[in-house]
């Protein structure tokens, strides 16, 4: 086996991992603080992709307007998330988790049909921005600039969040809210606003992920359900609610998938599911998570 090939697989796996991390981190954050397992997270990702396409159509495809579209899509999804949290999800916090799960699942169906109503069933595509359209050679392997950008964006966002959660006042409040919501409320913090903000932030990440994958994937109905399964695998491996767990969970997922096809060429997803099953049996709280105690 040639080293260039191994390097290519490694970079490929890393690209997949970092896009998945963007999406799974939002899912994990929302669960970590709000204790809501948001099935509709994949739907937010899909809406992010559709919005990015829509904005690109408005400002004219093929230019650097792509970045504006990405930002616009992520903000748009964050607003959508905020509205959903304020008007709907808020009423379910004190209910059993099963109801929350059913509610977010209902959202998946509603959003999928709304997207179909607005954008139809056609497939769409967005081009890579001209600034990142090229590629370069490392160890005889072609690495597209856009893929490199995605690979670097992942750790940047992870570090940013680490700083935000650990070194800022809002971050400390968020961590406090995750531990004891009532106590934080009694101490005078506006927990409601914190929750809305957190949900919007998680939705923002989903929208950002959806917008950023448009140059490497096709935008089609059904992309919502496909991604949520992968995101769940990542957070289960890494540990639900654990930020770094999600980061390393995504990397493990990407690499296992990438190199898995060398060992089981026709069972590429087998290795990933086997890993998830093993994690669930041996460490149900994930490789980097902590057992949940209430």
């Amino acid at each position: 086996m040639e080293p260039s090939f191994i390097f290519g697989q490694f970079v490929g796996g890393l690209t997949a991992a970092m896009t998945l991390f963007l999406i799974a981190s939002g899912l994990s954050l929302i669960f970590g603080v709000l204790r809501v397992l948001n099935f509709a997270h994949g739907s937010f990702y899909m809406i992010g992709a559709y919005l990015a396409w829509q904005i690109v159509q408005w400002i004219g495809p093929g230019g650097e307007g792509f970045w504006l579209a990405v930002l616009g899509a992520a903000v748009g999804v964050a607003v959508l998330g905020g509205v959903i949290e304020r008007l709907l999800l808020r009423h379910l916090y004190r209910r059993e988790e099963l109801y929350q799960l059913l509610f977010t699942y209902a959202l998946v169906l509603v959003i999928a049909d709304m997207a179909k109503l607005v954008w139809g069933t056609q497939q769409f595509g967005v081009s890579r921005p001209p600034s990142l359209a090229g590629s370069f050679q490392v160890f005889d392997t072609t690495v597209p600039h856009y893929n490199l950008f995605l690979v670097l964006l992942g750790p940047a966002i992870a570090l940013g969040f680490w700083y935000f959660l650990n070194r800022t006042r809002t971050g400390r409040m968020i961590r406090a809210a995750a531990l004891d919501r009532e106590m934080l409320g009694t101490l005078g913090a506006n927990v409601d606003r914190l929750y809305t903000g957190m949900f919007m932030l998680g939705s923002f990440l989903a929208g950002l992920g959806g917008a950023l994958v448009t140059p490497i994937k096709s935008i089609i109905p059904g992309m919502d359900v496909a991604i949520i399964v992968e995101a769940f695998i990542v957070v289960v491996i890494g540990g639900l609610g654990s930020f770094w767990g999600t980061f390393f969970g995504a990397i493990i997922y990407g690499q296992v998938l990438s190199f898995g096809i060398l060992i089981f060429p026709r069972f590429s997803s087998f290795a990933v599911f086997a890993l998830m099953a093993a994690v669930l049996i041996l460490r149900p709280w994930g490789l980097f998570g902590r057992p949940i105690s209430r």
Partner: peptide
């Protein structure tokens, strides 16, 4: 011969393996 599953989202490993 590469056999990605129906609905595969990331073809990169299959593409690299085939190019090799």
């Amino acid at each position: 011969q590469q056999w990605p599953k129906l609905g595969e989202a990331d073809y990169t490993p299959f593409i690299n393996a085939q190019m090799a």
